[in-house]
Design a protein around this nucleic acid. Structure first.
Lengths: 235, 235
DNA sequence: GAGTGGTCTAGACCACCAT
DNA sequence: TGGTGGTCTAGACCACTCG
């Protein structure tokens, strides 16, 4: 945590708190840029930087010639970034357990090599995990990462959250691109979920990228349809 | 179309074109802010506005102390905003046809009233559409909009694209929030898709909001799993 | 130390909106 | 007409990175 806030961050936090506390209500107009500039004794560009950030994160909207207004609160609270399974379960106060089904270093299948932009001889770790929420199997996950990038990774890192591992290494997924399909339970997963082959599953093929656009992970996730939904807010 | 571009828009377009044309390659460093400032004879803040927009839309990324770089192109091309079925089909060069199954003014079901934040006596239009891509049924859609907001809307507006209708009225969906589920084909839809009750479907419950956060539409969509996938890029 | 992006200032003119 | 946000200037100092 930083202990010194920039001026624009201070203004941002103040306004955000006034919204969250209910002092500023949805659709209500806030002070104009010139008023804020004098309130905080800063230049107008600094005020604008604060307001722009709040507009981008869905707290405020502007109308030229009219003013700046508070968004309807229903939206703000839903706006989240990319989060993984562990965080999602924590959000709903469910316990998480990961059972490692497979962990091996292999030559990548074609689709993995393409999506991770690998070179000819690059190998990948293939990790299969059965993931439980409140001790019920919810998700079977096939994860692929490049050996070159993660030489020292261990089985244990996958028993906990892979995203936490990334955070420790100061790596952050900046973008994600995903394809979502509805399918019947794949045959090889039937034993894990104790269901029949007609059970609907969400199949999510996800590529995670660093800020610069270089791919880090390719993951195929199979969510038990009756136990899991995707919720998203898009701008 | 505007005929006068702002300075920052001009710079944005130039850099975007240099990326798309291949002149600037992924991970390549672009000119520094001071160089660009002199190239375009503008102030540094104007350059920064252009660069910030390109960072937000996924074309560039920055490293303090190092420079500004081109993102990996794979991402840029996938970044899209919210688009509807018509636009999606156009993207894949498929013909679109909408068959109106139902069009009526009703008292809203509980879930619709909540999601559209209706008042007690508000009525809604309920529109059921069977939507075809290349003359194959792909999607069954139950759409709800408030009567108060759309008094003059007609059946014909739904035979074409509802989003085009909104655009004509200068309304724009600024946010969307959706919940995605994998389900078996609902019984009432079996006749439309000529399938059995085990066919997997994507069920998407979507709420569309204006920029200010007021809800405009609530839609439940049922996509035939074998014919349709969701593709998204998230930041 | 030189170069980069991040923050900030104190002005200015404009387009849009309400009255 | 007065107030609002949108664009733009010509400077300044700072923190970070790299050689």
């Amino acid at each position: 945590m930083k202990n010194v806030l920039n001026f624009y961050e201070k203004i941002e936090n103040d306004i955000k708190n006034r919204i969250l506390s209910g002092e500023l209500k949805p659709l209500q107009q806030i002070e104009g840029e010139n008023t804020l500039k004098e309130m905080y004794k800063v230049s107008r560009m600094t005020v604008r930087q604060a307001l722009n950030n709040l507009v981008n994160s869905g707290y405020l909207y502007r109308h030229k010639g009219k003013g700046t207004f508070v968004c309807n609160t229903k939206i703000e609270k839903q706006l989240r970034g990319l989060i993984g399974f562990t965080q999602t379960m924590n959000l709903y106060n469910k316990t998480v357990r990961n059972e490692i089904i497979k962990f091996s270093l292999i030559n990548p299948p074609e689709q993995v090599a393409v999506n991770l932009m690998l070179e000819d001889d690059d190998k990948v770790f293939e990790v299969h995990r059965l993931r439980y929420g409140n001790e019920e199997p919810i998700l079977y996950e096939k994860l692929y990462i490049s050996y070159k990038q993660f030489k020292n990774i261990s089985v244990q890192d996958f028993e906990n959250s892979f995203y936490s591992y990334l955070a420790e290494k100061n790596m952050k997924i900046g973008f994600g691109s995903q394809k979502i399909d509805s399918i019947k339970c794949p045959k090889d997963l039937i034993p894990y979920f104790k269901c029949d082959g007609n059970e609907p599953f969400l199949c999510v093929k996800f590529i995670g990228y660093l800020d610069d656009g270089r791919p880090v992970e390719y993951t195929e996730s199979f969510y038990l349809g009756s136990k899991y939904s995707f919720v998203q807010t898009i701008k």
